[in-house]
Each structure stands twice: as structure tokens, then as C-alpha cells.
């Protein structure tokens, strides 16, 4: 038990250190732009279809589950408000984070793990190539950008999925649904042009992107033991990313409700 706790603390410390090292190297981003764009493409474009499907059905399920209860009180007209707020604040960032952890995070851990066991990381070290600069920083940047972008997509298709179900199952007109969805996300007095519900959700997903990248890179770099070790690192990367996404999600939500109370 104590050993497991110590190992977890050690890994968390390494992940934070790696993230800090990547942030320190951000001024070199222009030099690594091709690698970062490659990663952005594989992490982002490669999972768009999954985000579309899962986001659409998540919105549909949310609408059906909530709409049935609202209909009992004759309040089904409010479904657009509920779905849009739920998707923007919670469901969109969370779904995107989980999908990215399971797809891009696992791929990233496997890639770096394979590089470790095939001596490519050792080769970089001997060649005096800074592996954080060369490998980690572009991946952290790519996931920190990809996650919010995919969240916007997930939010949008989720709300559209809700529109499909609300018109076909709940008898709510599509126009009314979208009017209430847009109204709920409006913040006319905000100094930012984006509604607060959207940008706090995007901030969450930005943090999730950082978590996925730093956990996956840490697990990959610390791989040992050949193919079995790569498998273990991949599993650990997905597991730890999901746990950290859920834990950080709570604290971020608590922060937003405590310090931005007009969201409540």
C-alpha cells in the first residue's frame, strides 16, 4: 500500500515536472511547428468521427432522459437550455477528454514506450537531443489545442442531437429548442465575446489536454521491459488520464462555481 502510494506520488511528480519542462520550452515552438502540426493532425483529425458520433448520441441520450422528466411537469420547452448548458459546461469537455485519453493518449504512450524499448530515446540522449523539446513539448501543445477544438465540435453536435430527439420524441419545435439553447449560452454583459459557460468548458478541456499529454508522455518515457512494458505503459496512461480528468474536473467545477458565481 505504502509502496503503491509512493509510486503514484513519484509518477505524479514526474508528470508535473515533464509538463513544467515542456512549458519552459514553449519559446522553441516555432522550431518544432511541423512536429506540433503533425501531432495536432493525428490527435485531432484522427478522432473527429468518434467525437461526432459520441457527442451526437450523448446529446440525444441527455435530451431523452431529461426531457421525459421535464414532460411530467410540462416543462419540456426548457430542454434546449438544459442540453446546451450541460454540453458546454460538462459533457462536451468530459466526453472529449475521455475519448482523447483512450485514443491519442494511448497512442502517444505506446509510441514513446516503443521508442524507449527500442533504444531510440537513448539514441536521442547520446546525440545530445533534448527529448522534452523534441518529443514532449510538440505533443503537449498539440493536445492542449486539439482538446478545446474537439470540445466545440462535441458541444455543437450534442446540441444538434438534442434537437433531433426533442422534435421527434418530445414534441418541442426545433426553432424553440435552438432559441432556448442560444439564450442559455448568452452573456451579453461579459467582457469576453464567448459565453462564460462555453469558455469555462473550453478551459477545462484545455487542462484535460495538458493532463492527457503529460501523463501519456511520462508513462511512455518511463517504459521498461519490452513489448509487455509498452502494453503496461499504455494501460497506465489511459487509466491515470481518466482518473486525473475526473478529479481535476471536480476541482475546476468547484473553482468556477466559487469564483464565478453568476454561472450557478
Amino acid at each position: 500500500m505504502i509502496k503503491a502510494f509512493r509510486e503514484t506520488c513519484d509518477l505524479l511528480g514526474y508528470e508535473l515536472l515533464l509538463l513544467a519542462q515542456a512549458v519552459v520550452r514553449l519559446p522553441h515552438l516555432w522550431r518544432r511547428r511541423v512536429a506540433a502540426l503533425d501531432q495536432l493532425f493525428s490527435a485531432g483529425v484522427g478522432v473527429v468521427h468518434v467525437i461526432l458520433f459520441v457527442g451526437l448520441f450523448a446529446g440525444m441520450i441527455l435530451t431523452l432522459q431529461t426531457g421525459v422528466e421535464l414532460a411530467r411537469f410540462g416543462q419540456q420547452d426548457q430542454i434546449g437550455t438544459i442540453v446546451s448548458l450541460s454540453m458546454a459546461r460538462e459533457m462536451g469537455p468530459f466526453i472529449t477528454g475521455i475519448i482523447l485519453a483512450a485514443t491519442s493518449g494511448s497512442a502517444l504512450a505506446a509510441e514513446l514506450g516503443t521508442m524507449k524499448v527500442s533504444d531510440e530515446l537513448a539514441a536521442l540522449e547520446i546525440l545530445s537531443v533534448d527529448r522534452v523539446d523534441f518529443l514532449v513539448m510538440p505533443r503537449v501543445v498539440a493536445l492542449a489545442i486539439a482538446c478545446p477544438l474537439l470540445t466545440v465540435l462535441c458541444d455543437a453536435v450534442g446540441i444538434c442531437g438534442g434537437a433531433l430527439v426533442s422534435s421527434s420524441q418530445l414534441g418541442v419545435e426545433t426553432q424553440l429548442y435552438f432559441d432556448s439553447a442560444v439564450e442559455a449560452l448568452k452573456t451579453p454583459d461579459s467582457f469576453l465575446t464567448l459565453p462564460k459557460d462555453v469558455y469555462t468548458g473550453l478551459f477545462k478541456s484545455f487542462v484535460f489536454g495538458l493532463i492527457i499529454a503529460s501523463v501519456a508522455c511520462s508513462c511512455g518515457i518511463r517504459t521498461s521491459g519490452g513489448a509487455v512494458g509498452v502494453g503496461g505503459s499504455t494501460r497506465r496512461a489511459v487509466r491515470d488520464s481518466i482518473v486525473l480528468i475526473i478529479v481535476s474536473n471536480y476541482f475546476l467545477t468547484y473553482f468556477f462555481y466559487s469564483f464565478l458565481p453568476d454561472l450557478g
Partner: peptide
């Protein structure tokens, strides 16, 4: 020289050989 060369898989041969020069 590592046992299997330890080439970086996503770089072509020219980029692999040039890597230490480009970096340092």
C-alpha cells in the same frame, strides 16, 4: 551504434542522419 540502429521511425534516412547536426 545501437543493435538495430535506433533510427527515429517518423524521420527519413536523411533527417535521421542529419539530426545531431540540426539540433546541435
Amino acid at each position: 551504434l545501437f543493435q538495430d540502429g535506433a533510427l527515429i521511425n517518423w524521420l527519413d534516412v536523411g533527417e535521421n542522419v542529419a539530426l545531431p547536426l540540426r539540433e546541435n
